[in-house]
Write a protein that binds this DNA or RNA. Sequence first.
DNA 1: GATGAATGAGGATTCATTCAT
DNA 2: AATGAATGAATCCTCATTCAT
Lengths: 240, 240, 240, 240
Amino acid sequence: MESKKFVLHLRPHSRIRMVALKTFNNLTEERQQEIILICLEEFALNEFQSASLSTIVSKLNIAKGSFYRYFESKQTLYYFLLDHCIQKRLESDQKTITAKPSAFFELMIEHLVGKMRFDKKYPLHSAFLYNVMQEKNSDELGNIQLTVKTKALEAVKPLVKEAVKNKVFRKDVDIETISFLVYRMQFTIMEYLELKYKIDFRQNIKNQRPLYDVSEKEVIKTAKTFLEIFKYGIINQEMK
Amino acid sequence: MESKKFVLHLRPHSRIRMVALKTFNNLTEERQQEIILICLEEFALNEFQSASLSTIVSKLNIAKGSFYRYFESKQTLYYFLLDHCIQKRLESDQKTITAKPSAFFELMIEHLVGKMRFDKKYPLHSAFLYNVMQEKNSDELGNIQLTVKTKALEAVKPLVKEAVKNKVFRKDVDIETISFLVYRMQFTIMEYLELKYKIDFRQNIKNQRPLYDVSEKEVIKTAKTFLEIFKYGIINQEMK
Amino acid sequence: MESKKFVLHLRPHSRIRMVALKTFNNLTEERQQEIILICLEEFALNEFQSASLSTIVSKLNIAKGSFYRYFESKQTLYYFLLDHCIQKRLESDQKTITAKPSAFFELMIEHLVGKMRFDKKYPLHSAFLYNVMQEKNSDELGNIQLTVKTKALEAVKPLVKEAVKNKVFRKDVDIETISFLVYRMQFTIMEYLELKYKIDFRQNIKNQRPLYDVSEKEVIKTAKTFLEIFKYGIINQEMK
Amino acid sequence: MESKKFVLHLRPHSRIRMVALKTFNNLTEERQQEIILICLEEFALNEFQSASLSTIVSKLNIAKGSFYRYFESKQTLYYFLLDHCIQKRLESDQKTITAKPSAFFELMIEHLVGKMRFDKKYPLHSAFLYNVMQEKNSDELGNIQLTVKTKALEAVKPLVKEAVKNKVFRKDVDIETISFLVYRMQFTIMEYLELKYKIDFRQNIKNQRPLYDVSEKEVIKTAKTFLEIFKYGIINQEMK
DNA sequence: GATGAATGAGGATTCATTCAT
DNA sequence: AATGAATGAATCCTCATTCAT
């Protein structure tokens, strides 16, 4: 099924390993998940630089040294988490999405709904991915913005191309722009919810609550509204 | 003039003073500007937590203690800079914007163009404001996202309301959503430029270069495209 | 054959075992050699304290625990390596040296040449031995300088005594001093080469290259020059 | 006076500052000396890597952070100490040395005696300089061996050249070799004393004792013996 | 008999802030 | 009024060694 590509689809940063060390993989599945969640929490609450391995380690009740037997470094951990969350998201999408690629906007709706469910089910994963998008470039992470976003865009583009072939979009806008707007949509909606419902993601994460406490129905309505505007424009057609 | 409200329009965070201490205000205007620029650079390159007062102080060639005679704390400085940049932006806008509020989309274009010129003229201010939007909430900064964005929205809303009265927009979308999309537009465009031209804002700031090296003509073309889609939608009308 | 004594000839430090554990000896000869070489590399590049067992273990692809089944401790390993290298050197010497002890300076030349060949053939062993000479005394290693050098001197002394009997040396210098100068010679030459040819032993080891890239002919010429001066002095005899 | 050049004469490593920070220079002379001595002790007892700033800081009874207001880094401290000790040594030499450069061997003797007195008076400085000579090259210190020794050699060379002009030395040995042997002499003697009198420099430093507890008369005798051999050679002239 | 996970103190360095001078 | 020295907890990361499995 081609639809699975309509998601973030990262390839490893050339120089940075995004894998855990053997020791980590040898832990029980439960312990691994526990560790991942604690780490995600820290990186969902803080940007890379400010996130503290000490905090993580103390929450995990392990020795500092032990942690470094799981992950080579803070960076490796970060990229491992990134990869992990993307995988999770991919899996999540593959389950939800059933629309044919030809029905582009149905696909988008499905994808957005999938995203919302993902947010509910994996708030930490979702919040972390949200954070990554806002991460500043740095010597440690490289031009992560460009890397991540470009890859995400590249995942969207083929679907857009297909739709272009089917003459879904107006002809005067190029594929790049459309792809960007499509990709941007989910974050725009998230940000809108944040504002409208005065959500403090950080507080919710801290308190182990879902990212946002809005009914799925409500969220879908919002998503549909945004998509409607995206499709037909904001102006009053009658006034034209 | 009403148009000046179509910009970020912050009110001080309730508990945090956003003013410099008297000592700072006693400095010569040049020195004040110098200090502000150095500080902006640091906060444009780093998020709040990671920005270093030590770095600032060393670049300014002043004593640590002196700095604390200018500003009460790192937070005070941050909010002072925020206020300062917003003022700068307001002033900038007031000069550029001439369209009547009734011609909503002309106003938006003007506003976007104004934004681009502001970026060129005050790259540090602009980059800092961009950063603020991505700042994480924290104990030190409070729910800054909500605060800043809400205020910005509130500035946009009256204009939107006016336009709604003039039946500019389709009726099935509420004012909140429209206002949000209007407010969001400028950042969307900025992010698009970043991706399309593979711009690394951080590198440009570091190298004392403009935020992005794209001709104004090019930028305006992009802005118009986005606005066009915003107005009329993305779908192929003929296929409807 | 007596000549074999004209080399470093250590006896174990009283309290420290210099042997590998049984487990190590049960390994195949190849594996043993492999382990020794990796360890030597680490101790040739770093002094005792800074050398890292972790590095060694990771290069060897064995478990940390396994390593401690081969050697009791870092110190034991160090002294084992020391013993091993000295043995190697002894063997090497026994093959090369043919001169009779009576022909003292011929013996020295042979010995020096042997040393150079050893350097080429076993750069790691040689570099390690060089390092040992510069090792600082410490609680962990004891007065290793004194120990090693004294033993080395003791190996030289009988030969010198024999030569003294044969009236090879001037009478106003005692055996201790002569022995010391004889023993010191090889390191002096090595240091001279390092300086003259701007050799960075460390880099060469890292890059798996020979210790120094100087033709044997050149080295022998140097050695002969030094020995000539040692024998006849530096001053212009004609000016006396 | 030209003779002052017959000592280590370093120029700053191109990339590494060898100066203390302003804060350090503002301390009282006594405190500065105290700090220097404690640091020298640590670097006299340990090589660069193993020397611990924590130890230094705790001996100095200051906060970790305070130390970094005196010196930029461990490396800077190291090079500062190196420079300091060399200066001390230079000053010491300038006081002692009175012989004319033409009387080369008298000059050497004076220089050696000066060295011995320096050892007594400034055991920590002397021990540190001794250590530097044995320091391993590393990423942190660069090819320090080559740097330091080459510079030292360059300081010796002009004197040797002068003596060569005066036909002091045999003609079949080049200036490089002679210079090296001259430079090497002082360390050879030091090493000899260490062996002969079973001196443990490290213990003596630890116990705040002089580097070695040998009468100056004895030391001078030794020095003269070595020089005698250097001049006239080791062999029994009568037997020639 | 071999493994490899765990340890926790130690490493160098940076930080925002205070306060005596 | 201005300085700049002092703080000490925080940062990430490495270490040799142990011991339960």
